[in-house]
């Protein structure tokens, strides 16, 4: 072993910079003066930064940021409320037909969102649920629920049986075991599920653009999209909105990185 060669770090930094260039460019454009955007040789650095873009973004897009927050937290609540007990039923209570259910959940994850969007649209038209925040919370949660159940079930299957047995001998019922033992032990799984339920709802474009096209409260993804349509000259404001919309992802990556990595791998690899 030759220790830790410095050239690898240098190469790693260069590769990361290359990979993150679009993100840098978004920030750079968001700080550029609208007049300079139309130059054929763009400024590589925000040498004369202006916050006009952010002012425009915040004055126009604040309500949609709030809507997206509400939808994100609604999706977390719905997803955890459905997925956690189901994971418990599968992994701890050994629900009969569990294998079939697992299989259905895997298949559910393969269904294209555009198909679900059409189905939901057809249903919501009749129920008058188009352009409502509730409708969007339900639709967005469908991305996270199958993932959540599988993640909970995998984790809960690994909870030592003695723990559950001992509680049962002490006279605890299934509900008590679920709330007092299984859920606290599964705290990390809950964080991972919540994180992804939020991110997917926050980032969703397909459901937003189909089920909430004319709503009074539109989420931020649709806000950006309509911005691009109406406002093709003000790319600094569009990129400023995009940068603001990226904040949750950035924050979560910093504070919850290991849950992110856990979630990505849970879908494919488990050791």
């Amino acid at each position: 072993m030759t220790g830790r060669p410095l050239w690898k770090t240098a190469l790693g930094v260069a590769l990361t910079a290359l990979m993150l260039f679009p993100v840098y460019w978004m920030v750079n454009v968001s700080l550029t003066d609208a007049g300079d955007l139309r130059r054929s040789d763009p400024n590589w650095f925000p040498s004369d930064p202006t916050f006009d873009g952010y002012e425009a973004a915040l004055s126009q897009q604040l309500p949609s940021l709030g809507t997206s927050l509400v939808i994100g937290f609604g999706s977390i609540a719905l997803t955890v409320a459905i997925a956690a007990p189901a994971g418990y039923a599968l992994a701890v209570l050994h629900l009969r037909g569990g294998r079939t259910l697992n299989f259905l959940l895997l298949v559910a994850q393969m269904i294209p969102a555009v198909v679900m969007a059409m189905g939901f649209y057809a249903i919501y038209v009749r129920l008058d649920l188009l352009n409502t925040v509730w409708g969007l919370i339900v639709a967005d949660s469908t991305i996270a629920v199958p993932f959540g159940v599988l993640l909970y079930a995998t984790f809960m299957a690994g909870i030592p049986r003695e723990l559950v047995h001992a509680a049962r001998i002490d006279g605890a019922g299934s509900w008590r075991i679920f709330t007092k033992i299984v859920m606290p032990v599964s705290r990390n799984s809950t964080l991972t599920v919540a994180l992804f339920a939020f991110l997917w709802a926050w980032s969703d474009f397909i459901f937003a653009s189909t089920l909430n096209r004319a709503g009074e409260y539109i989420p931020i993804t649709l806000g950006i999209y309509q911005y691009i349509g109406n406002n093709t000259t003000q790319w600094n404001a569009i990129m400023a909105t995009a940068a603001i919309a990226s904040l949750p992802a950035a924050i979560l990556l910093v504070v919850a990185q290991r849950y992110v990595a856990a979630g990505v791998t849970a879908g494919a690899v488990k050791d």
Partner: peptide, 26 residues
């Protein structure tokens, strides 16, 4: 496993976490 490899690897996750509308419009 060189120096900083963990941090840099985490940064590589950024494109995947951004809302698609953000990446696509950029």
């Amino acid at each position: 496993n060189f120096r900083l490899s963990g941090v840099l690897r985490a940064l590589f996750l950024v494109p995947w976490l951004l809302p698609l509308i953000v990446s696509a419009s950029t």
